[in-house]
Design a protein around this nucleic acid. Structure first.
Lengths: 116, 116
DNA sequence: TTATCATATCGACAGTTGTCGATTCGTTAA
DNA sequence: TTAACGAATCGACAACTGTCGATATGATAA
């Protein structure tokens, strides 16, 4: 079993950042998700999936799209999956990736200062 | 002049992540802001300022609050100021920090998938 | 001025991260 | 079974980061 296909190991704390001081545990968890997103290549991977007309992108297309080698792209995709931000689906020999909308909504809720 | 007191060197791109593929430049900028936030100690610093009744916290209080040495806290505060996420105000010999609400709102707007 | 105190900067170190080439794994087709 | 191919993993390396102690800076008070 790949770690990539297991449920997210990092959970998002439930209360918005602005309501109360974060516990060390919540801070670690939230930092984990943000770190997964805090890379230019990974941000572009995410935006490419979002912008795709079919809402999904084949792994085989990414190396050309972000100008990185296959192993590098695979590494970045693994980090995004591990953080729960995107989902992976094996279809034949190809791997397809979609956005985990719920995860992004949850992240946005935590960061939304209007909810504080 | 301190780099800390200068305007943010990293700007946030204006269109939500979900609307179109990020340019390399926009991805670099957004990653810079996210990286500033993607650390447990810095997240706790931010949440402590948010949760403060007076909406501001003296630098002198942070080392005890986050269990880090003064030089370490100063380093983290510098990163948050440089990213434009918090603001610094010198008052006598003390430095006081507040949240840059506009910056957080802007970040949330970029990450908000509902706008895509 | 001088002393004191809060905070920023410096130098060093260990741990982490992004990248790549090479290899392995898994699926499909012959 | 074998060959071909997409994708994950491995090993290595340079670059970056968090942490600390020590020092420097800047402001206030005596």
């Amino acid at each position: 079993m790949f770690i990539m296909t297991s449920p997210p190991t990092v959970s998002l704390c439930c209360s918005p950042l602005a309501t109360a001081p974060l516990s060390e545990q919540d801070a670690d968890d939230l930092a984990g998700v943000l770190r997964a997103l805090a890379d230019p290549v990974r941000l572009r991977l995410v935006s490419l999936i979002y912008a795709s007309a079919s809402d999904e992108v084949c792994a085989c297309d990414f190396p050309a799209l972000v100008d990185r080698k296959q192993s590098t792209v695979s590494h970045h995709l693994s980090q995004l999956v591990k953080a729960g931000l995107i989902n992976r689906e094996q279809r034949g020999k190809w791997a397809w990736f979609t956005i985990d909308e719920a995860r992004f909504a949850s992240l946005c809720r935590v960061l939304d200062t209007r909810c504080g």
